[in-house]
C-alpha cells in the first residue's frame, strides 16, 4: 500500500567543474506536498558492503527536485544514485539513475582569466575553483608560438607572477584547468595578449 506514489522520473546528473547535482522531475499530487529523499551507493558499497545505500541527509525529505551530491561523490569510482517521493502518508518506489555516475565525466570549463602587464612583469589573475583544481598556464612572446612556456599554478589567491618580459614586446597567455584526481583538463581559455613597458601601450 506504501508504493502508491509514482516514483520520480527523468533522474539525471548535472556535473560541471567537479560540482555534481542530481535532478529529477517533480511528482505532483493534487493538494499534497511531495518531498524527496536521495541515497547513493559507491563501488565500495556494491562490492564490499552488501550493496548498501547511504542516505544524504541534506537531501532527506526535501521539496526541491535537485540535490548537491558533490560532497559524497568524492572518489573516482562508479556511483549509483536513487530518489524517492514521499507525502508522509504514502511513499514511492525508488527511482534510480540510469547507469552509473563517475566524476571522471564532469565537464570542465576553461578558467576565467585576466592577464596583466605591470612594467616588465607578466601576471595573471585566476579564479579559485576549489582544492581539486590546478591551472596550466601557457605564455609566449607574440610571434614565437613555437617557444611556449608553461607554469602549473595551484594557489590562485591573488595575482600570480608568470615571468619577466622584454621591453616593448607583446606577450600572449592562455590557461586551462587540470584536475589531478581524474587526470583531465579543460579546453584552453581565450588567448589574451599584453605589451611590456617600453613600447606603445596597446591592448591587443
Amino acid at each position: 500500500e506504501d508504493a502508491l506514489l509514482p516514483s520520480p522520473q527523468n533522474i539525471s546528473i548535472l556535473s560541471t567543474n567537479m560540482r555534481h547535482f542530481l535532478t529529477w522531475s517533480p511528482v505532483t499530487i493534487q493538494g499534497e506536498t511531495v518531498r524527496y529523499s536521495v541515497e547513493f551507493q559507491g563501488e565500495y558499497e556494491r562490492e564490499y558492503a552488501n550493496e548498501s545505500w547511504i542516505p544524504i541527509c541534506e537531501c532527506s525529505l526535501i521539496t526541491a527536485t535537485v540535490c548537491n551530491i558533490t560532497e559524497d561523490i568524492s572518489a573516482t569510482v562508479a556511483y549509483n544514485l536513487r530518489v524517492r517521493a514521499d507525502t508522509g502518508a504514502r511513499r514511492s518506489q525508488w527511482g534510480t539513475l540510469k547507469g552509473f555516475f563517475n566524476r571522471i565525466t564532469t565537464s570542465l570549463t576553461p578558467p576565467p582569466m585576466k592577464v596583466i602587464a605591470d612594467g616588465y612583469h607578466l601576471l595573471v589573475e585566476l579564479k579559485d575553483m576549489g582544492p581539486a583544481f590546478q591551472f596550466c598556464v601557457l605564455y609566449w612572446k607574440k610571434g614565437q608560438e613555437s617557444r611556449m612556456h608553461w607554469k602549473m599554478v595551484k594557489d590562485v589567491s591573488s595575482t600570480v607572477h608568470l615571468d619577466t618580459m622584454e621591453a616593448g614586446h607583446d606577450y600572449c597567455v592562455k590557461a586551462q584547468t587540470y584536475v589531478e584526481t581524474i587526470n583531465r583538463s579543460s579546453s584552453f581559455s581565450q588567448t589574451q595578449c599584453v605589451r611590456a613597458q617600453g613600447g606603445r601601450s596597446l591592448w591587443l
Binding site: 605591470d118 601576471l123 594557489d155 591573488s158 595575482t159 607572477h161 619577466t164
Partner: peptide, 21 residues
C-alpha cells in the same frame, strides 16, 4: 608605489625578482 601585489609559488628557498623600478 603602485600598491600592486604579486604572488610566487616556489619549491627552493631563493627567489630573484628582476626588472624592477
Amino acid at each position: 608605489k603602485t600598491k600592486k601585489r604579486w604572488f610566487f609559488s616556489i619549491s627552493n628557498n631563493t627567489l630573484v625578482v628582476p626588472w624592477l623600478e
